[in-house]
Simulated assay, not measured.
Amino acid sequence: MDAPRIDSLFAQLFHSLDEAAPMQQLCNRVAQHFGCAVALISDSGEVLATVGALPLSPLRSHAKRIDDTTQEAITSIGLWQLHHRVIELATQRCLLTLATHRNDPAVLHLDQVAAIAAAITAAGAFERAQAHRSLNMMAQVLRDLARGIDRSHEHHYWPRMESFGFPAHHPFQVTIAVPRNSQHATTARLLHLIDDAAEQRIGLLISHQLVRTTAAGAVHIVTPATSSARGWLHAKFSDALVTHSSEFQFLEDIPRALHEAESTLKLAQQIRDYSADDHVPAPLGYASLPLTAWAASALPQRELFERSRTVLAPLDETPQLRETLLTYLQCGMHIPRTAQALFLHANSVRYRLERIQRLCGVDLQSAIDLANLTLMLLPELWCCCEVGRKAAKTQFLIP
């Protein structure tokens, strides 16, 4: 096949692709034009597009084995003759397979395979550019809403929200996720989440770290306030700190929702920091926080820390007293249970509690002093024993 014919074939395949699904439409055109089956599989084994009844299982295994030495090959499976071509698609390497039946008069030439591979590579670049534009639009809308809008202007934004999959005027919530692995917050990762949310029919606004947040690597997300959206988020960010705002009805409340999610995130970070095994806390929701946890998340963190240090600093040199105080609070101020948990005699616990009262200047019989100590030690109370872990699972999980 000569060069003009290849150029003409490329233009014919690539002309007027549907912006919503360019890759699948292009594969449909290739299958129709050449009378072949088509499979496009990433080197991770993900099927990106397919046309025809190809045996995908062995093709996925083959795609996972491609390396720098693999470029093109012709193999066979049963009655299928397979033309393989390795192509670079966006940020991943993929295996393009074109298959014809041995008894079929249709024959694929190498230059035709090259033209098809070039067209699919171009479609991938086009699809990638579309996804980048969508991510940039989401980020811009989220920045506008984060600055605050008047309710009278909401009608300008809801059509855009609907284009991102949101039901019109449906309650929404803001989520902040801070992945443990920085790779989970890359642009490629966010683009994948956008595609997956569209497939699952979940409304989504997503952006990298906004100026408001103090968490490096944070991802800001707005979704409909539904159990399916929350479940999707928890599955996609299972190894991340995740916090949710309350549910809101009006877009003018986005700044308030961001503040709620961010203040809850500060509490989640403290809980993680006090966890001995680097345990990632369960997702926290601002609306379901108990009053003490809500107060800890809402208070200025620096001032809370400084006031806590003023009271608890005397225990720095006596870690066994700090452990006794934590266990005492976790055991409901019950001395026998505290003694059992610490493998001590009850009189030893009483002696330690008296020392704590003298050193810290508190009265463990005072409801106010007990409330203050609970607030100061909340992250440790949450993480350091089975009672804290049970509370995290039963009281603070988003339903």
Score class of each variant (00 low, 15 high):
Asp7Ser: 12
Gln140Tyr: 10
Pro379Met: 11
His109Trp: 11
Tyr157Val: 07
Ala122Leu: 08
Gln330Cys: 08
Ser42Asp: 12
Ser297Tyr: 02
Met333Asn: 08
Asn181Met: 09
Gln112Thr: 12
Val211Tyr: 13
Thr214Met: 09
Ala49Pro: 01
Ala339Gln: 06
Glu72Ile: 06
Ser44Met: 11
Thr327Ser: 00
Arg352Asp: 10
Val362Cys: 10
Asp273Pro: 00
Leu82Val: 08
Trp294Ile: 05
Gln249Asp: 10
His220Thr: 15
Asp111Phe: 03
Ala188His: 13
Thr175Val: 15
Trp232Ala: 05
Trp232Glu: 00
Ala90Cys: 12
Leu377Ser: 05
Thr97Arg: 07
Asp253Arg: 10
Leu377Gln: 00
Glu262Tyr: 08
Thr97Lys: 01
Thr70Asn: 12
Pro290Asn: 15
Ala125Cys: 13
Arg322Cys: 09
Ala37Pro: 06
Phe126Lys: 11
His132Thr: 12
Gln112Asn: 02
Leu397Lys: 14
Ser16Gln: 13
Gln92Ser: 15
His244Val: 06
Leu353Tyr: 06
Glu72Asn: 11
Glu262Cys: 00
Ala63Trp: 02
Asp363Thr: 09
Ala197Leu: 03
His15Gly: 05
Phe14Gln: 05
Pro283Glu: 05
Gln25Arg: 07
Val219Asp: 00
Ala90Asn: 12
His234Val: 07
Ile356Glu: 08
Ile149Trp: 01
Asp150Gly: 13
Phe396Lys: 06
Arg143Ile: 02
Cys360Gln: 04
Gly217Pro: 07
Gly52Asp: 10
Met137Ala: 15
Met1Ser: 13
His220Lys: 07
Gln12Trp: 15
Ala63Lys: 05
Leu56Asp: 08
Gly217Tyr: 07
Asn372Cys: 07
Ala339Leu: 09
Gln357Asp: 02
Gln24His: 14
Ser76Lys: 14
Ser238Asn: 13
Pro55Lys: 14
Val211Cys: 10
Ile398Ala: 08
Ile176Pro: 00
Met137Arg: 13
Glu88Phe: 03
Ala216Asp: 14
Ser245Asn: 07
Leu145Phe: 01
Leu378Glu: 02
Leu98Lys: 05
Val113Tyr: 02
Leu378Cys: 00
Ala177Asn: 09
Ile149Ala: 04
Ser57Asn: 12
Val174Thr: 05
His155Tyr: 02
Gly332Ile: 01
Glu386Gln: 14
Leu210Tyr: 04
Ile176Thr: 13
Arg5Cys: 05
Ala139Glu: 15
Met137His: 15
Leu110Arg: 10
Ala198Val: 11
Thr175Pro: 00
Ile221Cys: 01
Asn181Cys: 08
Ser246Leu: 02
His155Cys: 03
Ala198Phe: 09
Gly203Met: 11
Ile41Gly: 05
Ala114Phe: 06
Ala119Lys: 04
Ser297Glu: 03
Ser297Trp: 09
Arg212Trp: 06
Gly332His: 05
Lys393Cys: 13
Val38Trp: 08
Asp43Tyr: 07
Pro159Ser: 07
Arg5Ile: 10
Glu72Leu: 06
Ala114Trp: 00
Ala139Phe: 01
Ala125Gly: 09
Glu19Cys: 05
Ile221Met: 07
Val349Arg: 00
Ile66Val: 14
Leu241Trp: 02
Gly285Asp: 07
Arg128Tyr: 13
Arg29Ser: 04
Ala117Ile: 00
Thr223Ser: 02
Asp273Leu: 12
Thr187Ser: 12
Ile77Val: 10
Leu284Cys: 05
Val242Asp: 07
Arg128Gln: 15
